[in-house]
């Protein structure tokens, strides 16, 4: 990323690009474990959506569709709170890989 100098920065360092933090891929923090979504067990209660601190639950229309691994940090709250009879989210081992970093 090219660093801007005071000449280019907005006065008061105002950030005019709302929500541009989506460029930070917090999924690169994940180490060892990731949640896996099993659609056929899902009762669409949306608790995983509610309890995900990193906004990593993919929702399309009325349904939870899976997990956004770009942002999932693997905290495991979604799997822990999944109330369906057979869990629709389970934590699985993930091969540890070096972070790929943002797309800049």
């Amino acid at each position: 990323m090219k660093k801007e100098t005071w000449k280019e920065l907005t006065i008061g360092t105002i950030n005019l690009e709302a929500g541009n933090s989506v460029q930070n891929l917090t999924g690169t923090w994940r180490s060892g474990h990731k949640p896996e979504f099993i659609e056929e067990h899902c009762i669409q209660c949306f608790f995983c959506w509610l309890y995900c601190p990193h906004f990593a639950i993919l929702v399309e229309g009325d349904e939870v569709k899976g997990i956004d691994y770009d942002y999932c940090t693997g905290c495991g709250m979604c799997a822990e709170e999944c109330p369906s009879k057979e869990k629709s989210i389970v934590m699985v081992k993930e091969e540890v890989k070096l972070a790929e970093g943002g797309t800049e």
């Binding site: 929500g19 933090s21 989506v22 460029q23 930070n24 891929l25 917090t26 923090w29 601190p53 990193h54 906004f55 990593a56 956004d68 770009d70 942002y71 940090t73 693997g74 905290c75 495991g76 709250m77």
Partner: peptide
Amino acid sequence: VAGHGMCLG
């Protein structure tokens, strides 16, 4: 939105 730096959990 996503991409904030808050801790796991």
